[in-house]
């Protein structure tokens, strides 16, 4: 059964159409790349799915329900912008997540933080950008959610941190959960994706199994992406 479904989804900001009549069905247990150049509608789609924006037309279903308090309890979302308050310590933010999300696994979060030697009494404001990025990801992946939306999880960190982040995603997502990763850094994520969704100018132009695509095209997903979106 599909866990995420978009039907004729349109979102306009005034005259500008960000998503145009998008239909998409994603199954549980898959890691899906939401791929497209800047401004193609990736973040808009994820924000709509999280109820942060309201669609102009169409329907969104997460586990059969429209975005609501109910769906937020099963969706773990990593926004593209840093949202952590500087004054909190790691311990504070963990307590905050525990309060908000009943599926938050404190032990798992602590193990991941321990592996990185992050001190729980450290203030978030004192951390480097890369460390904050890792903390945000740890908080997101420590939930035992049914759907994970990760908006640009690897943008803005060095290649070693990228590997760490991808490894954390692979090793922590629930096997029967859906993981949606939006990015324009295709080469870095293509080995972890089951499926690729290409967005262009607010429209889904391709939704395919990555292995089949590579086999058919005889080139990497990154190579194919560069071909499709050549300027």
């Amino acid at each position: 059964m599909s866990i995420f479904e978009l039907r004729c989804l349109t979102k306009s900001y005034g005259k500008k159409v960000a998503l145009n009549n998008v239909g998409l069905t994603l199954e549980a247990g898959r890691i899906v790349g939401l791929l497209g150049p800047n401004g193609s509608g990736k973040t808009t789609l994820i924000k709509l799915a999280n109820g942060l924006l309201r669609q102009t037309e169409g329907m969104i279903f997460i586990d059969g329900k429209e975005p609501s308090t109910e769906t937020k309890s099963i969706v773990s979302y990593l926004p593209d912008k840093d949202f952590l308050p500087d004054w909190m310590t790691v311990k504070d933010i963990i307590a905050y997540y525990v309060d908000f999300y009943s599926d938050f696994d404190t032990e798992r979060a602590k193990t991941m933080l321990g592996n990185l030697n992050i001190d729980e009494n450290m203030r978030l404001g004192k951390m480097s950008k890369g460390t904050r990025e890792k903390v945000r990801l740890i908080l997101t992946m420590a939930r035992r959610a049914k759907v994970y939306f990760l908006d640009e999880p690897i943008a803005g960190v060095d290649p070693a941190a990228r590997d760490y982040i991808l490894r954390t995603i692979i090793s922590n997502y629930e096997p029967d959960a859906l993981v949606v990763i939006s990015t324009h850094l295709i080469a870095d994520v293509e080995n972890v994706l089951d499926e690729a969704v290409f967005l262009r100018n607010g429209e889904v132009i391709l939704h395919k199994n990555v292995e089949e695509l590579v086999e058919e095209q005889g080139k990497s997903l990154d190579g194919y992406f560069r071909e499709v979106f050549a300027c």
Partner: peptide, 11 residues
């Protein structure tokens, strides 16, 4: 092994 190779467990 998926973690070691940094690939999708389904793969």
């Amino acid at each position: 092994l998926a973690m070691e190779a940094n690939v999708n467990p389904n793969t």
